[in-house]
């Protein structure tokens, strides 16, 4: 029997049509992922009484005040009220980390404090607590423009992210740009293809019945084209995140987003 895989791949290529040369989305045409959702899902995100991401933010708020680790310190012991100290912080991550001389994302930054300052074990990727803290910190930037730092040291990493973005990958041999730049607004099965702006993460995804990070979303896109997804925390993901932040510069942060 013939395997169904090549047929699926052909159907996908046919559905997306012939690819034009990679065109960057003009600033005036940029749309947040929430613009592609049904009115009901948008409503669910916009009302804090119905957005399930707010439950994660509440969890994050109590973790923020919980003493832990060998240092027996809470985040609040050093950073005070997150409403002031963390305002705008998530909007400028990933950022350059002096100690490692590499860029780190918000989750990485939280785990650095957890290890170096609280003297505790790092929180696992996608764990409830790490997502909750990131959501709570992300919420403090809600409504503020995405503001990647103008830091020269980030440039080579961001450029590698840009190269990855346009590199074909997986058995289906698609690049991120082919879907998200050349074919946004079209459908892949029943799902509209968004422009892939990362301004609402972590998100509550209805399909997951739970919260997930940007890296979880990116791993989904990679397995979607049958590529071997990078492991959580991989340098390649941080580089892609840097490039995504650059593309979304100025777009308002929506954390916690809701996605279908």
């Amino acid at each position: 029997m013939k395997s169904a895989a090549p047929v699926g791949a052909l159907a996908l290529i046919a559905a997306l049509g012939a690819f034009a040369a990679l065109a960057q989305i003009a600033e005036a045409d940029r749309k947040s992922g929430s613009a592609f959702m049904s009115a009901q899902t948008q409503q669910m995100q916009h009302d804090d009484g119905t957005n399930p991401g707010m439950l994660s933010a509440l969890d994050g708020e109590s973790l923020w005040k919980t003493k832990t680790g060998g240092a027996d310190k809470s985040c609040a012991d050093c950073h005070g009220e997150a409403q002031t100290s963390m305002k705008g912080v998530a909007a400028r991550f990933p950022a350059f980390n002096e100690a490692s001389q590499t860029p780190i994302d918000l989750q990485g930054r939280i785990n650095l404090c957890r290890q170096d300052q609280q003297k505790d074990t790092p929180l696992a990727p996608e764990s409830r607590d790490l997502l909750a803290l990131s959501t709570f910190i992300g919420l403090q930037s809600r409504g503020m423009p995405t503001a990647p730092p103008d830091d020269q040291r980030l440039t080579p990493f961001r450029e590698r992210g840009r190269a990855l973005w346009s590199q074909r990958m997986g058995q289906l041999n698609f690049s991120c740009a082919q879907c998200h730049e050349d074919n946004w607004g079209k459908h892949l099965g029943s799902a509209p293809i968004p422009q892939a702006h990362a301004n609402a993460y972590p998100i509550y995804r209805l399909e997951w019945q739970g919260m997930g990070s940007l890296q979880r979303r990116l791993r989904n896109c990679m397995s979607g084209v049958r590529a071997q997804a990078f492991p959580y925390g991989a340098q390649e993901f941080i580089e892609l995140e840097l490039y995504l932040a650059q593309r979304a510069r100025g777009m308002p942060v929506e954390t916690p987003g809701v996605r279908p």
């Binding site: 009484g49 399930p52 439950l55 509440l58 969890d59 019945q209």
Partner: peptide
């Protein structure tokens, strides 16, 4: 009245 309860179900 609106109630959203955190639970894995």
């Amino acid at each position: 009245i609106k109630v959203l309860i955190s639970h894995p179900m």
